[in-house]
Amino acid sequence: MTELIEITIDGRKVAVEKGTKILSAAKELGIEIPTLCHHEALPPDGNCRLCQVEVVERGKRKLAVSCMYPVRGPMEVFTNTERVMDARRSVIRLHLNRCPQATILQDLAREYGVEPLDERFVAEHDDLCIRCGRCVRACAALGNNCLGFAGRGWDRTIIPPFDEPPVGCLGCAACAEVCPTGAIKVREEGNIREIWGREFRLVRCTSCGEYFATKEQLEKVDSCGVEVSEICPHCRKRDEAKRMKIS
């Protein structure tokens, strides 16, 4: 049995299951709240603080991190008050100071009217990682756990174990795909793909000769109970059509 709770967001009512996060409840109403560390496929972590909203609950009014804050009882939520906008602006400013070259932050700064930083400062700071940990969580979702946080405070970084090329890495680059700022670099040249300091030799399609995947990727698919061939997706489709033609 799931208990439904009715709440109000920006004056509109919505009934959600107990435990639903405010962010998802707002989404049901089509109300968008900006996020950075949140990803629908991954467990919430609440570290970027961009998604803050104002909540009035049991007579108290406070800021809450909407991707983490569960609906437990009746509440009123405001997503665009002056206080919320102030909170968002200061969060954007903080992230921008760390990663002034991140386009997603530059866009947010423009949208929320955060004054741009000094050009020289921007030029000198090329760190793109906002430490949101989406890469860490994506790798964990794949069951690989190749990435983690190291260090504290300002020096906190994302690294593979012992800061060495990760042994369990598939070279799938899902970490780079989910990174909101493009901080993770993947290099692909000929039959080599490089990520996190590790070089992968790519598998060659037995039909057309194109390099299309790492051996580790194919093994991972195989481990999901799917028989996988060393024929690239393009050729598989064409081969299938050919088979239709003959039969």
């Binding site: 496929a41 799938c172 899902a174 795909e177 989910v178 990727q217 991972k220």
Partner: peptide
């Protein structure tokens, strides 16, 4: 559901008929 996709391309590699292509 593209919001739940993390871009690992496992599906692309798995389909025996090449019927999924990841759009980066």
């Amino acid at each position: 559901n593209s919001e739940k996709c993390i871009g690992c391309r496992m599906c692309e590699m798995a389909c025996p008929f090449g019927n999924i292509a990841y759009n980066a």
